[in-house]
Design a protein around this nucleic acid. Structure first.
Lengths: 222, 222
DNA sequence: CTGACTTTACATGAATTTTACAAAAACAAG
DNA sequence: CTTGTTTTTGTAAAATTCATGTAAAGTCAG
């Protein structure tokens, strides 16, 4: 599924049509509000994002996407009328996967999208993370440990997903809060520890794969 | 390039030096005026911003940075005296990327900066230090000596990281305290010696790579 | 009501700091 | 070159502080 965020109705319809013709599912949104609303229902494989938008602009939307663990991994292609270098730099800095300068042809757009999808989703649409005997399917929202299905709560699932997306990397509690909870917690909270605890408990048949790095945070064994 | 905005001269120099030792270009500025002046010439990859500043304060500077398209995407780490939670809230609301409570060690500062850079500018956050057969990964918080994993405590790890970031360089005990423990460590103790001792013990299979320079301090063999 | 999430409180064990003394090096004087 | 003295460093062990795991109670949304 590809989401297209573009305020101009004609352009938006054209894009959606072009993607559908190329065999992709696609939906169009006229602004950030509608887009984030739809995001709650379904996570797309790719987002086409116009920089110039009424209300919240594309840069801001991209930032919000990148700041939440759930949407962090979604590839984004930025599109803008302004050929200025600055927008390009900012977009790519924030983690846009590619950049299209208007006016662009539909063929070029589809081929760029295909390239990004090929890079980020080898196996076409299979978004399965594997670390050791752990397998997490982001499409199905399921987790298997040595083939056995685990029943995780949302926070546990997202924690695990974050860990599995960067095995070996240490995450501080602040980073975990920022990525999984999405907010900037003030003061101290043991919430993270508790969830790590329950996650470990459910994983305990599988093994001790979430390590604590004393004084720093937690890490998943590579 | 990293810009450090900090009014205290000693602290500022220390920060700039620490970044340079870690392989980053860095420049220091004592107030908002000098900082914005330099911004016209060059856009940094990261800004370290003290909240308490003479003239325009850090919050206001951050606001100005975020309000211009050119500087909007520059990541910012705020630094402030401990306990002023209110500032933290405001800073994070305005889009600071991270937050450091004074007093903080230079090692921690560099590692936070690296984390932010890794997130915003992949490629700028290369994070593996190698000296001889020693290998230290700052992202994973792991150390290998001749391929064998070492289990270090936080202080041992940060000491080693400091040494490895400037092999051959002699550090006085004061410098070690300043860098690893924090800017204003109070009282003189033998703490450093003890930690050097335990670090040496854990490294002893690898070799005597941390030498004492009698009357001065310690140094890592190049 | 139920399940998920958060907060609180406390036990535990690890990390860190302090202390004390031994060992090593530097130094001074004969 | 000795010898004794002083300074500096190494380190074992005790004392202290701190971070974490976790049970249990509280909160909240559906």
């Amino acid at each position: 599924m590809i989401f297209c965020v573009e305020d101009d109705r004609a352009a938006r319809d054209l894009m959606v049509y072009a993607f559908q013709a190329a065999g992709y599912d696609a939906k169009g949104f006229s602004d950030g509000k509608a887009f984030f609303c739809a995001l709650k229902e379904e996570l797309p494989d790719l987002v086409m994002l116009d920089i110039m938008l009424p209300g919240e602009d594309g840069i801001s939307i991209l930032k919000r996407l990148r700041s939440s663990a759930v949407t962090m991994g979604i590839p984004v292609i930025m599109a803008t009328a302004k050929g200025t270098e600055y927008d390009k730099v900012i977009g790519l800095d924030l983690g846009a996967d590619d950049y299209l300068a208007k006016p662009f042809g539909m063929m070029e757009m589809v081929s760029r999208a295909r390239a990004v999808l090929r890079r980020t989703k080898p196996g076409k649409g299979s978004n399965i993370l594997k670390v050791g005997g752990l397998e997490l399917d982001t499409g199905e929202h399921t987790v298997f440990a040595d083939g056995e299905r685990l029943d995780l709560t949302l926070k546990e699932y997202e924690l695990l997903r974050l860990f599995m997306s960067s095995p070996g990397q240490v995450f501080t509690r602040d980073q975990l809060l920022q990525n999984v909870w999405g907010m900037d917690y003030i003061g101290e909270t043991r919430t993270v520890d508790v969830h790590i605890g329950t996650l470990r408990f459910k994983l305990n048949a599988y093994g001790n794969c979430i390590q604590t790095v004393r004084g720093v945070g937690y890490r998943m064994e590579k």
